[in-house]
């Protein structure tokens, strides 16, 4: 039973919580605001918060100067592509782990998790050399391959925790009803697991979108996603705050919105089911 809380107390908490929340969010808010300023207003001191001449010029300039849309497209292809391929490989694996667990299932799951803990620098050189020899450096396919592999354990784990909540009896019922393996997965398991699969997809797109070790090290110009696009503003363009802000806003906004939608599943996905 929740206790009745005095209005006064609630008011105080409201003020404190909003202040803290806005402070944490401020860098993002400030970036978004600055992206609508002129370069002069962006570095004005004291800075103006809302009272400036709003302009979209920065966005146009960022697009024309460094081709935002190409990088955006690369980000979409790489993050969505790697997630979809990952799901394709992970759904059957998670099915077997959740519904036909054997003595080794737990070991396999733990081992998969352990691959996620391999620090990327440990394999940076071989991957770099292999990719160089295979002509995969600075290619979208190469990045899709790498991101599929680094996120595969998370995808398997998330699906596994969702599948486990589906009663095995329902799949057995489908088997009794004459469903073969394909029908069992397509007509019974997947439709029931839609919410879980959707949040798995969402979280992994986010993780792949923001991945910045491999995307920075394995891409140059052709395949560069938004992480690399922004890194290009490191210097000296970074001193043009308004343009940097416009570029940053465009890089972050799509995934921030997706992230807000998937926040409920975030905890479970990122803790491999250890915290629900």
């Amino acid at each position: 039973m929740a206790r009745a809380v005095s209005t006064r107390r609630k008011l105080v908490v409201t003020v404190v919580a909003w202040t803290v929340g806005l402070l944490i969010f401020f860098p993002i808010l400030w970036t978004a605001l600055t992206s609508f300023k002129t370069e002069a207003e962006a570095i004005a001191s004291p800075p103006s918060f809302l009272a400036f001449d709003w302009t979209l010029a920065n966005y146009a300039e960022v697009q024309s100067r460094s081709d935002y849309f190409r990088h955006f497209l690369n980000s979409v292809i790489i993050s969505v592509g790697s997630t979809l391929i990952g799901l394709l490989v992970a759904v059957p694996a998670a099915w077997s782990m959740a519904f036909v667990p054997g003595r080794r299932t737990k070991d396999v799951l733990m081992w998969m998790l352990s691959t996620k803990m391999l620090p990327p620098v440990g394999v940076l050189i071989p991957i770099y050399l292999l990719f160089r020899d295979a002509g995969l450096l600075d290619s979208r396919i190469g990045l899709v391959i790498v991101l599929t592999l680094i996120n595969l354990p998370i995808i398997v784990w998330m699906l596994f925790t969702y599948f486990r909540e589906i009663p095995a009896e329902i799949l057995e019922a489908a088997r009794m009803d004459g469903a073969d393996f394909k029908s069992e997965i397509l007509h019974v398991l997947l439709p029931m697991a839609v919410p879980g699969i959707a949040s798995t997809l969402l979280l992994n797109v986010i993780l792949a979108w923001n991945e910045a070790f491999w995307t920075l090290n394995l891409s140059a110009s052709q395949s560069a996603p938004l992480t690399a696009f922004i890194a290009g503003y490191s210097s000296p363009e970074g001193l043009f705050y308004a343009k940097l802000s416009a570029a940053s806003t465009m890089a972050v906004a799509p995934i921030l919105i997706l992230g807000w939608f998937s926040q409920k599943q975030l905890v479970r996905g990122l803790t491999f089911g250890a915290v629900k």
Partner: peptide
Amino acid sequence: VVRLLVIAPFFVMPTVSALVWKNMF
């Protein structure tokens, strides 16, 4: 809403947050 504000930084890609902090703050 406050919950959304607080979790927002997690979704900002590392290169963006590093550059924004470095230059603008």
